[in-house]
Amino acid sequence: MPAHRTDLIERYLHAVKFWLPKAQQEDIIAELAEDLRSQVEDREAALGHELNEDELVAVLQKRGDPLEVASGYLPDQRLINPALLPVYKLVLKIVLLWVYVPLFAFIFLGPAFTSARPAAVLLVCCSEYWRAAFATVGMVTIVFALLDRYQLSHGRADDWNPRKLPRVPGAQDTGARWKHLAGSIFGIAAAACWVYLLWHRTEFSFPDGPRFVLAPVWGEIFWPITGLTLAGALIDLLSSLRPRWTRVRSYVRVGIDICGLGLAALLLKAGNLVDIAAGTLSVADRAKATTWIHVTSEWTLIILAVAVIGDGIQETRRLLRGKPAEPAAISTAA
């Protein structure tokens, strides 16, 4: 047998062997070698001469790339169960889009607007976002791969109940979703502004202008207001993702309204919310400005309290009306 033939075939077999499962390597390679030998002999008989190097190369090329040949013997492998793929995508979408984007906006929006180098802040924001996103994708993938490996999803196919399927969303649901989503974004932005403006701040001062000294009550209500604003944003986010969870939303909204009313009462009870300290203003002007601020803030708080009471009444009525109407399709079927 010519040396070039042995060399090429052995190199080919060795390349295929590399990709094969260890337990089957020898067996598969022996069969493949025998098949190649038979094919070469048949070809030589047809041509009437021994195959030269080019002809042998053509035979091996026709047989296919070693990796491709070996892959035919490998078991079907997958990282994630195709049945779990839609859930996997949904989890990534929720985390990367609906959690990380508002969170990063909350953290970086304030500094971006006030920094002397907003581009640098945005660059840090982007790089941190991608870092977090890559880590999250990796972790979520590992969790789903483990779910598939240990077959934790088994049994689901038999357990499902058509009655538990979500209602087909109508135009009204789509509108409500957008409304809640807008509310959520607004809530997060409001919380970001609130934290940025009042974080450890006791006064607002302007160069060559008056200083507005905040009353101590602002320090007391800083965290409660931050918490309530974020709670409102989160319940709006939940409502946009799960529009059918109206009762959960109503309960939380009523709770937020009661707390909001308590805070408004606390602020009204505190009286003067801001004092003006300014050397440039006359005593009379200072008194006038202080009174104006006091009256304006009291009226603002009263209007806010009325709005909160109105919202609370609306949500309570929703709760008292009972469960939301059943979907039309189920009613008809019944």
């Binding site: 493949l32 098949d35 035919g72």
Partner: peptide, 10 residues
């Protein structure tokens, strides 16, 4: 093809 036949046999 050989690449179809042998894996199928296995």
């Amino acid at each position: 093809e050989e690449n179809t036949l042998y894996p199928l046999l296995r």
